[in-house]
Design a protein around this nucleic acid. Structure first.
Lengths: 335, 335
DNA sequence: ATAGGATGTCGAAGCGCTTCGACAGCGAGT
DNA sequence: ACTCGCTGTCGAAGCGCTTCGACATCCTAT
């Protein structure tokens, strides 16, 4: 294993000079720099991460806490994780993957051990037990998702309230008066996941404003659960002509069931999905949808974090504006 | 930040004693140990990761390289990643998330800097450019997936050859004589991803043995691509009664299309899927399938790695035996 | 009674790096 | 000619931990 000292000797300079070449924290003459860089290349030198962390008390690692659960949005989580990892790399950081399993202890461990310089939390509950810790530590953090109380925290998320409003807006403007919302699994609502509730708020308030009737039903993924849910909805509100779906694994089952019942999309009923772009495009009907901008969220979170690490940038909530793309699943309401 | 020295002082012992309490590498009297542990708890001490890594030249971190691409098996990747992370934690290790983006350089960087003690590589190509590096370094590694030449490497994977054979076997035993294979996207075959080709080998050789005709067609995910592919298949081989699907995002489109054409499953045609359990269960028809045991693969990989880190355990290939679960999508061939 | 082996604890030497203060050398301003 | 202030380089201290050899105690076997 090549060390700094060996590089220094090879280049005929002192260790500190090599260090300054590497960090750029002091000016170095061009000739010296080139000589050192040459030696680094020839010897295949890589700075030792542990030594570096010890001496500088910065690990150049950020921790990413992902949910252990896989009952929702798996591809979204994955996409965010990948975006975080690649964006972090462009800033010279690596990413440590933590699962939610350890809960608040993970936060303590990482903060206490100096393993990571900062952290990104995904799948934040409205009243998340990790939040008090984050507020107390001086370690920078960014949440992907919005808790109930965001004071003293930096958060990045899609504006789900606006998303909900946008969906109702679209259907209402097409003349739909009875709209059913097919939501995430009941468990998601039970543990008060922010985005689900905020979407609901947006849906409801815009429904009120536009005088549209709304029926919200949580739904486990899959064909069978969807069949039961749909039957109930049509039983309670036979005149339903618009659907908003916020549950990836209910999308295709819903379309299949509608087809099977002879309800044509978009002639008889309209469907708006809140889902990743790919799902909307690959579905059996190209879906009018509001995309969940996973990459953008991951990227944003890292950028915020870097700003905090450089002590520019303050606590604030970044809400990404939703965009509704009209495709082939929505049309004027039949009357 | 609390240090070892502070704990030592608080407990009235030397720093080395505290260290030995922590590591258990030398015997410590019960009274001393308890006193030290008490101090650790009271002060909320967490060993500094960097210092530890520097002094011991072990970081207690394993690197996990995941594919950057998200054109296949996203949930599987995610599940593996989570299984790796949680299993690693039970061994006192954390997981560093690397994307394939950096390619072989990532291997060099991690090895050279001592950032991680070992690594797990996913999405291994048959002739992966990272392999020579792995063979040369003394850093332990485990591959999830099988390259062409496994000498000097430890690999964990589902036995895809046996998987392919099993699928044909099942359909053949039900009397199907014409089987179509709907595969991954063409790009997956073009970059010679091992599992896809090995599945094909298994399918073909068993087809030969059982005298069954096989037609293999790669397929992009989604409804439209599937429609085109299916039309071609039925054009070339109108008598096809059995399908093997190895492409998550083609499963539901296939079922929808078959339904639409009036081909009942399983009465008219049978479908076997190679996919995660969840997909098979949640599909519109409960699918006979060979499960991709993501968790098991992740767990296995970590266990192997730990064995190598303790210098028990040798290079070897662990192939997980496939299991076919019969559900509602396969039945006797119509004649 | 005494050597000899356990057993438990300590001091000190690093691990490879960053960073601070010191300082040599040089051109510019008086 | 002399001082002043740069610029570029160096030496040394120290980050918080592990680990090795040394050593003091105590118990057991002779």
């Amino acid at each position: 294993m090549v060390t700094l000292a060996e590089v220094a000797q090879h280049a005929g300079v002192s260790a500190s000079t090599v260090s300054y070449v590497l960090s750029g924290k002091r000016s170095i003459s061009t000739t010296t720099r080139q000589r050192v860089e040459q030696s680094i290349r020839e010897l295949g030198y890589h700075p030792n991460a542990g030594a570096r962390a010890l001496a500088s008390s910065r690990s150049n690692i950020i921790a990413l806490m992902i949910p252990l659960r896989t009952d929702m949005y798996v591809p979204v989580m994955m996409e965010i994780a990948i975006a975080v990892a690649t964006t972090a790399r462009t800033h010279g950081y690596d990413v440590l993957l933590l699962t939610g399993e350890e809960g608040p202890d993970a936060v303590r461990r990482v903060t206490g051990s100096g393993l990571a310089d900062a952290m990104i939390l995904m799948d934040v509950q409205l009243d998340d037990e990790r939040l008090p810790l984050l507020r107390h530590t001086d370690q920078p953090s960014v949440l992907i998702g919005l808790p109930a109380d965001t004071s003293g925290l930096t958060c990045v998320d899609l504006d789900f309230t606006a998303t909900g409003a946008l969906c109702v807006e679209h259907l209402a403007s097409l003349g739909h008066r009875d709209i059913a919302v097919i939501g995430e699994a009941p468990a998601v609502y039970e543990r008060h996941t922010g985005f689900a509730e905020r979407t609901l708020d947006g849906l409801r308030s815009r429904a009120r404003e536009t005088g549209v009737r709304l029926l919200h039903r949580p739904c486990e993924g899959g064909y069978d659960a969807m069949a039961v849910t749909l039957a109930r909805i049509l039983d309670e509100r036979p005149g339903t002509t618009g659907f908003v779906v916020q549950n990836e694994s209910a999308v295709e089952p819903l379309l299949a069931l509608l087809r099977q019942q002879g309800r044509a999309v978009p002639e008889d009923v309209s469907v708006v999905a809140i889902c990743p772009e790919q799902v909307a495009v690959q579905a059996s009907v190209r879906l009018t949808s509001v995309a969940i901008p996973a990459q953008e969220m991951g990227r944003h979170a890292v950028e915020r974090l870097m700003a905090k690490l450089d002590s520019r940038g303050t606590d604030e909530v970044v809400l990404i504006e939703p965009e509704l793309t009209v495709r082939a699943s929505t049309g004027p309401a039949a009357h």
